[in-house]
Amino acid sequence: MLTLERLRFTRGDYTLNADWSLPRGSRCAVLGPSGGGKSTLLSLIAGFEPPAAGRIWLAGVDITGQSPGARPISTVFQETNLFPHLSVSQNVGLGLTPARLSAAQADAVTDVLRAVELAAFADRKPGALSGGQRARVALARVLLRERPLLLLDEAFSALGPALKNEMFALLESILSQTGATVLMVTHDPEEAALMDQIIVVEGGKAHAPQPAGPILADPPPALAAYLGR
């Protein structure tokens, strides 16, 4: 369970408030107008931005003061998920430890690369991969890390429709293996429809998650305006 307890973020005139819980295993889209604070919400949860007030709980632990790397969270960014100077397997292996990998850890890296069908590319640099392959490397690291919360910040928005579908299928299989909770920022209602919960971020507030089907079928005014309905 992810709980944002009276969480408040301010920068200059801008504020963002959130006060809700998301059950474990939820698949939740974050929708809203651009500039409304979708990415800020994710940055708060990931620990890149400090909140002005409030607490963040994950599985009963207060993670508010933890550094980003110490939180039981995996993040997939829109760009820059891989270090271009490191090989695919090094990039994935960094998800476990920056120290030398043990034999078991190295095997685990090979396993997840096989799972995303990139075992043959283990020694390549990201520059030698296609966009879809790079996204799969990022997901392989997510699978390897097995963190209970996964944050996707428009992770697949640069991919074409076919690749996007492929990534969602891969994501689905990763989630069924790890049982992780997902929060996914998107601007695409079709992607949002693939999730089972929706958080609308607008007007300085991240609204509590609601079931996706009803809210997309009958959107509240702010969301309707954003969706153009």
Partner: peptide, 14 residues
């Protein structure tokens, strides 16, 4: 790359 490195807990020597 700062955010990526932070999310992977790369600090200090690492």
């Amino acid at each position: 790359y700062g955010a990526l490195a932070d999310s992977l807990a790369l600090s200090g020597w690492a």
